[in-house]
């Protein structure tokens, strides 16, 4: 794919287990274009999260090549990888991973603090991100005062505030009820449509699958299917 922002070629990931190795991903060849709304689908242990971690430069492939936004993941040092994550990649986690001592506003602002933006610019960007997820009235609340759905919306705002090219969402609806799951997914779908951000999910949640434009099925660390979905929404 010419306009691919993520290119995975012959990617294999092995973890040492005892005296041997466990192969989590095996010979993965995939590419993602800008603006995709794709999902890595499969049962637990199929390698979804491992693949997201490599794309997110949190891990490196054992064999093969992972290129994200023209950066070879294996060739990045710690600082370069941190810089890539900070400027270009947003993360959304199953358990939200909000900083408990920070308010909603401060949680969303955190990523911008690392980018050394001015206070005025930060304020504008944070409020815009909170508006996207409909939480402007909760800016002073702490995560402990929010519901699960609200926490995940804060996490979405945090991942989106820096306007990244890629958002990686690892089981984003696993801890949410049906209503909140749909709300979250609709929010992300809207951001994908309006801002052209590439979303890659790891999920085995049927509700998420309904929203995916592309579904990549993994089993035992291998891609078993890669299909464009027929959207029901």
């Amino acid at each position: 794919m010419d306009n691919a922002i993520i290119q995975l070629n012959g990617l294999t990931k092995r973890f040492p287990v005892g005296s041997g190795y466990f192969t989590a991903l095996s010979d993965i060849d995939l590419s993602f274009s800008k603006g995709e709304f794709a999902g890595l689908v499969g049962p637990s242990g199929s390698g979804k999260t491992t693949l997201l971690n490599i794309i997110g430069s949190l891990d490196v492939p054992s064999v093969g090549e992972a290129t994200v936004l023209n950066h070879s993941i294996a060739g990045l040092n710690q600082k370069q990888a941190a810089n890539l994550r900070n400027h270009h990649i947003g993360f959304i986690f199953q358990t939200y991973n909000l900083l408990p001592v920070y308010t909603v506003y401060e949680n969303v602002e955190f990523a911008l603090l690392l980018q050394k933006m001015s206070a005025t610019e930060r304020r504008k960007a944070v409020m815009q991100a909170l508006e996207w997820v409909g939480l402007t009235d909760k800016e002073k609340s702490r995560p402990s005062m929010l519901s699960g759905g609200e926490c995940q919306r804060v996490a979405i705002a945090r991942s989106m505030v820096k306007k990244p090219e890629i958002v990686l969402a690892d089981e984003p609806t696993a801890n949410l009820d049906s209503k909140n799951s749909h709300h979250i997914l609709q929010t992300m779908q809207k951001l994908n449509d309006e801002l052209g951000v590439t979303f890659i999910f790891s999920t085995h949640d049927e509700k998420v699958m309904q929203y995916l434009k592309r579904k990549i099925s993994l089993a035992d660390g291998r891609v078993v299917a890669d299909e464009l979905a027929i959207l029901s929404q």
């Binding site: 710690q78 358990t95 991973n97």
Partner: peptide, 16 residues
């Protein structure tokens, strides 16, 4: 640990 992982995911280096 999770908080540490989050910091790194948000763009901090381990030394930071």
């Amino acid at each position: 640990q999770k908080e540490i992982g989050t910091y790194i995911a948000l763009g901090l280096t381990r030394s930071q």
